[in-house]
Design a protein around this nucleic acid. Structure first.
Length: 603
DNA sequence: AACGTAACTTAGGACTGCCAGT
DNA sequence: ACTGGCAGTCCTAAGTTACGTT
């Protein structure tokens, strides 16, 4: 049961005093701000000062199995000669062999990074021998891997069940924790297995060895008074700490980028649910002051301060186009991608007129995950003039907003509204767009068929996905499956024609007759026609939906940007079953919204 | 103020297993 | 019973933001 309607709203929430709270420790009963009696006399506790829990107990992360050496008959060859590799070198060789069907392994950067890191794992002797990746023959390793995959696929039902049960046992043991009074699922309790780093796009580190994580690398976070997780036999943890100002249960540092990895709770947990609710409440708060903020940045477009003008233009983009903030990135460490503040002059082209429209900005850049953002947008004159100004005397590689960064932008935003940052605009614009589109589509289409209602919902969802530029690679089987569906539609059409003819014939025969049998036949044929029509419509709607969705990913916005209460209310109003738009995982994640939302909810 | 990084959200692709249609 | 296509799940990379340090 969720009690978040009683929670402090974000503006009333005290500012964090992180470190201090941690030092005081979780036993401090003064950290319990409020005990609120909920329904059924359940007591919910709210904490202040960024305290996330009072009690946390878990079994620690689950480690992947140790590497098992190759069978003797599977050989690696160098320069045509079999070479028995040392265990560490062999393990890394297998990582490469496993990926050989992938395009990655043909790329120069990938191969070079792999080879460099692989050589580090070799013995001196191996290193002296193996000097050239092109002389390496992983053929047998690759074949063995493919065989293993095949064998796994061909397991009998019983064997698969045994595996499934073994997996379930691991989930039962490691997949849950106790946080305060709740038993909660953990999102990622498994330590990431070693392998070759697969960055996205043109990643300078692709192919580097992602090393095996040992318990000695792992920090455990839990309550002092909980049963401390046991490290695997013969090992010890890097550290056991008791920091209740954070939500992670375990962490380690990953070697490729040097960043932290965390074991955290599942999205259906109370902690994550509250955070999610809070996010949407901030976005709704923005709704109440967005007009003022827009008026302000319109004014700022005329500012004498260049920095203020740049901030205003950036904000205009973030608001209108739902661009991400765009932090600076360290060159050479990651793929070259940008967001709003990090746009460079080569990413936009200004057109005084284009296709009959005035003041058009053409965007073309790679955003998060190297997804291309391409858009031609008419903008207001003042923005256009400013852009021209910002581009003056600059060349390729120069920042468009040279007097602006995300910290400055967010600092400004938080002064306009507590809790406001650049990404809130994405959440706000996504959710408000869904709400508007649902309303419009309902008015204009007035469908009473569930399939058509769902098409409307998906179209509204799609409008958001397009706004947020959530793309996907067209499924490999797309053309084929589309053709299959069309064939089915065609054959169903023929079937319908036939059914109609039969109905006509039956009617004719029954005319004037009072023979009950004939009347029953007519009814039967009528039903058949009706059923056929329904099936045909359903398939046609499905075809439309699928075609429109070819390169668009709806799931990302559904999961991260759309206030679930809008969808829950829509289902109630349209008399559509919630499970038609939310699968089990989403229903779990949004349990808080399903619980609290009435049909009249307005974002 | 500049910088580094911890903590957390957001993201697309790979993988899996189920079920409709044969 | 078989299978292929796809929805759902898993995986982990890649963002954002706040905070601490120099």
């Amino acid at each position: 049961m969720y009690e978040m309607k009683f929670m402090l709203s974000f503006s009333e929430r005290p500012k964090k005093k992180k470190k201090k709270a941690a030092e005081e420790g979780q036993e401090n009963s003064a950290t319990v701000k409020k005990k609120i009696k909920g329904k059924k006399d359940k007591v919910e506790e709210k904490y202040e000062d960024g305290i996330k829990w009072k009690f946390l107990e878990h079994k620690g992360p689950y480690f992947p199995p140790e590497y098992q050496t190759l069978p003797d008959d599977v050989k690696f060859y160098y320069n045509g000669k079999p070479v028995k590799l040392s265990l560490p070198a062999e393990e890394v060789a297998l990582f490469f062999a496993q990926m050989m069907d992938h395009e990655y392994t043909t790329k120069e950067v990938f191969r070079n990074n792999f080879f460099r890191d692989w050589r580090k794992e070799m013995t001196l002797e191996e290193r002296q021998l193996i000097m050239d990746l092109n002389k390496c023959d992983f053929g047998e390793l690759h074949a063995m891997h493919k065989q293993k995959v095949e064998a796994r696929k061909n397991l009998s039902k019983e064997e698969k069940l045994v595996n499934k049960e073994a997996n379930q046992k691991i989930v039962d043991e490691y997949g849950c924790c106790v946080l305060d009074h709740h038993r909660e699922r953990i999102g990622n309790f498994k330590i990431e297995p070693p392998g070759l780093f697969r960055g996205r796009g043109d990643h300078p580190k692709q192919g580097m060895l992602k090393k095996r994580i040992q318990p000695e690398d792992v920090i455990i976070n839990c309550s002092k008074d909980s049963r401390i997780p046991e490290p695997p036999a013969g090992h010890r943890w890097k550290e056991v700490r008791h920091d209740n100002t954070v939500t992670w249960l375990a962490s380690w540092t990953e070697n490729v980028q040097g960043s932290c990895k965390y074991v955290m709770l599942n999205a259906n947990s109370k902690l994550k649910g509250e955070k999610d609710w809070e996010k949407y409440e901030v976005a709704r708060k923005l709704k109440t002051c967005v007009d003022a903020i827009r008026a302000q940045y319109q004014e700022d477009l005329k500012s004498k301060q260049m920095g203020t003008r740049q901030r205003a233009v950036a904000l205009y983009f973030i608001d209108k186009l739902a661009l991400r903030a765009g932090n600076e990135k360290e060159e050479g460490e990651t793929a070259d991608t940008v967001g709003c503040c990090s746009l460079r002059v080569e990413h936009i082209t200004l057109h005084d007129t284009l296709d009959g429209q005035k003041c058009v900005v053409e965007f073309d850049f790679l955003g998060k995950d190297c997804i291309r953002y391409y858009n031609k947008v008419p903008v207001i004159k003042r923005v256009f003039k400013n852009l021209k100004l910002f581009m003056e005397n600059k060349q390729e590689g120069d920042d468009l907003f040279d007097r602006l960064n995300t910290q400055m932008l967010n600092k400004h935003l938080s002064s306009l509204m507590p809790g406001l940052t650049a990404k809130v605009f994405r959440t706000y614009n996504a959710s408000i767009t869904l709400q508007q589109q649902l309303k419009e589509l309902r008015n204009s289409e007035l469908k009473d068929n569930v399939a058509e209602k769902l098409l409307s919902y998906n179209r509204a969802n799609r409008a958001v996905a397009i706004l947020c530029n959530h793309q996907r690679a067209p499924p490999k089987t797309f053309e084929q499956s589309m053709a299959n569906l069309q064939a089915k539609i065609d054959s169903r059409k023929e079937q319908l024609d036939l059914a109609k003819k039969e109905l006509k014939q039956a009617k004719k025969e029954a005319k004037g007759s009072s023979d009950n049998k004939l009347l029953i036949v007519v009814e039967k044929k009528k039903k058949a026609v009706q059923r056929c029509e329904e099936q045909l419509l359903k398939m046609e709607v499905q075809a439309t939906d699928r075609e429109e969705n070819k390169q668009i990913a709806l799931s990302t916005s559904k999961l991260n940007y759309l206030d679930p209460r809008i969808s829950v209310a829509w289902c109630k109003n349209m008399e559509v079953q919630l499970d038609k738009i939310y699968n089990k995982t989403l229903r779990d994640k949004f349990a808080w919204a399903i619980d609290m939302t009435e049909h009249d909810f307005v974002f």
